[in-house]
């Protein structure tokens, strides 16, 4: 038998959150944590959690699994279970709506702040903005983020200042547009991140890298942004200096 401890909190009924233990027959084949939750929900329909695609694409079921953030749908039970015990908690640092469901407002507010869309005021010549294969390659490892919030909610700097520190997920997306050869607002994007909190509160703890279910590296992207801020060089100056030479 496995002891599954689930964080429970229903603000309409509970004064404080508590951990509820469920006994679960150890499955003969390995299953995902989400499948375990689905089976427990059949016994207790009041257990609340988000889920949708069940294949690591939608990013809905991010949660803290035995102390480490991850997606329940692509986390095999065998890889996280310790001494037949499993603790499931909501993503840390964000307000809990109910049980394993968190309020993502602060996370999305930071994402909105970095203007996650292509900005280019120049006229389009042939109906679309072309990009060389080399420039397109620079976006690999950046665009794949599914905004599950596992990284930002594992980051102590984001826990302390979720309103000021942009957080690894949104910074990865900020660099995705900074690095895009078709985007012409690099200087403005960097200017928006130049205060002491937005980027510089990243101290390279690298929890974001160790938890990312897609294997991305937000810390590297943050390092690139810091390098551009510190050197004063951005894509536009590099393109301009290339044109002069």
């Amino acid at each position: 038998m496995i002891s599954v401890n689930i964080y429970r909190y229903n603000p309409e009924k509970d004064s404080f959150p508590y951990m509820q233990t469920f006994k679960f027959e150890k499955p003969k084949r390995d299953i995902m944590v989400l499948e375990l939750l689905n089976q427990l929900k059949e016994k207790d329909p009041t257990i609340s959690y988000r889920r949708s695609c069940r294949e690591g694409v939608c990013g809905s079921d991010g949660m803290n699994i035995n102390g480490k953030n991850g997606l329940a749908c692509i986390t095999p039970l065998s890889t996280v279970i310790k001494k037949n015990k499993l603790d499931l908690r909501p993503l840390p640092g964000l307000p809990v709506v109910r049980d394993l469901v968190v309020d993502m407002t602060e996370f999305y507010a930071q994402y909105e702040k970095i203007k996650p869309f292509l900005q280019n005021d120049t006229p389009v010549d042939i109906g679309e903005r072309l990009q060389s294969p080399e420039d397109r390659d620079k976006l690999d490892g950046l665009y794949e983020c599914i905004l599950c919030a596992c990284c930002s909610t594992s980051c102590p700097s984001f826990w302390w200042n979720p309103d000021k520190f942009v957080g690894p997920a949104a910074l990865l997306q900020a660099y995705r547009f900074i690095a895009d050869s078709r985007d012409t607002k690099t200087a403005e994007r960097l200017q928006d991140l130049s205060d002491p909190f937005s980027v510089y509160r990243c101290h390279g703890i690298m929890n974001c890298v160790s938890v990312c279910p897609k294997g991305l590296n937000p810390n590297e992207a943050i390092g690139e942004i810091k390098s551009m801020l510190l050197s004063g060089k951005n894509k536009q100056n590099i393109i301009a200096s290339d044109a002069v030479s």
Binding site: F197, S198, V199, Y200, K226, L229
Partner: peptide, 9 residues
């Protein structure tokens, strides 16, 4: 800009 200044200091 102040973020970079503090970093360098």
């Amino acid at each position: 800009m102040i973020g970079s200044t503090l970093f360098y200091v």
